[in-house]
Design a protein around this nucleic acid. Structure first.
Length: 270
DNA sequence: ATATCGACCTGCTAGC
DNA sequence: TGCTAGCAGGTCGATA
């Protein structure tokens, strides 16, 4: 489910409500991708100051350290004053003075991890290798183009790797490459500078548009109020194999790159 | 260093 | 109707 837009939409949906809440109790269900990294009791009484985002991670600032939350493939957060008793796939509850933050994650590829700071320990390990934030006003298009020049892997796989630019997952990679007219199979280093600059723009455009649409709901995604996203209706290639290209009318192609599906138009993307 | 591939886990759908 | 294979929004760690 969650690429940058879904994580950002989630963040915006509960940040103000949870801000300055104090943690009252913690409930953990089945194991998630990584252990919490501290005794749950250590979180009690701590205040949550703000909720930030880095790539696809949410970062909750506490009195003592940070709590990282990753939604994996199938996770979403719910935040409400009260919630029903945990059901199947509700694997983490953070009870606070403002309400309950609950992670629902059927596949359990998600995680909640405590770290002493954002720049040390578990957080350093998880966030340290991440690339640039595409929606940061300081995003450096020249540096982005230069970084692509150093990579021989296909442009699609370099986007997904997240060490050049963060937040672009399988849906938005296909969409951004289509809008930039770049063949997803092209080695990143062979993408011309103008095309790389164009791609930087289409990545920003696609992600921003998706945030405005509340993200993409293929099956699981909801924001913390339980509302769906609608960007899937604007997708021009993702999930449209065999359907006519909206630019040239020829059928959209699908292929596998690194065990992930890529959707593109052979005619419009060179 | 970089690229590829398997692994993690559950649910749903298409096809027989 | 029921079973099975294959696929799904991510990313880490082992291997070449």
């Amino acid at each position: 489910m969650p690429e940058l837009p879904e994580v950002e939409v989630t963040r915006q949906s509960f940040m103000a409500r949870i801000s300055h809440a104090q943690i009252v109790s913690v409930r953990m269900g089945k194991p998630l991708r990584w252990p919490l990294g501290c005794a749950p009791e250590q979180l009690l009484q701590q205040t949550i100051y703000q909720v930030r985002r880095r790539g696809k991670y949410l970062i909750l600032d506490l009195d003592d350290g940070v709590l990282l939350i990753h939604l994996g493939m199938s996770g979403h957060l719910v935040f409400a004053e009260q919630l029903p008793a945990p059901a199947a796939h509700d694997h983490f509850d953070l009870h606070t003075t403002h309400g309950v933050l609950r992670l629902h994650d059927p596949r359990r590829f998600g995680a909640v991890v405590w770290s002493a700071s954002q720049d040390s320990g578990a957080a350093l390990k998880l966030l340290g290798g991440l690339g640039a934030e595409p929606l940061d006003p300081d995003f450096d298009v020249q540096a982005f183009a230069a970084a692509l020049k150093r990579r021989q892997a296909s442009i699609k796989q370099v986007l997904l790797a997240g060490d050049v630019v963060v937040g672009v997952g399988n849906i938005y990679a296909s969409e951004a490459l289509f809008r930039a007219g770049i063949d997803p199979r092209k080695p990143a280093c062979k993408v011309s500078k103008p095309k790389a600059q164009k791609l930087a723009g289409t990545i920003q455009q696609v992600l921003s548009e998706a945030i405005r649409q509340g993200g993409t709901t293929l099956r699981d995604f909801r924001n913390s109020h339980g509302e769906y996203g609608w960007f899937q209706l604007q997708a021009q290639v993702y999930g449209r194999a065999g359907e006519p290209c909206l630019q040239c009318g020829r059928p959209i192609n699908m292929l596998r790159q690194g065990q992930r599906s890529t959707y593109f138009c052979r005619n419009c993307q060179k």
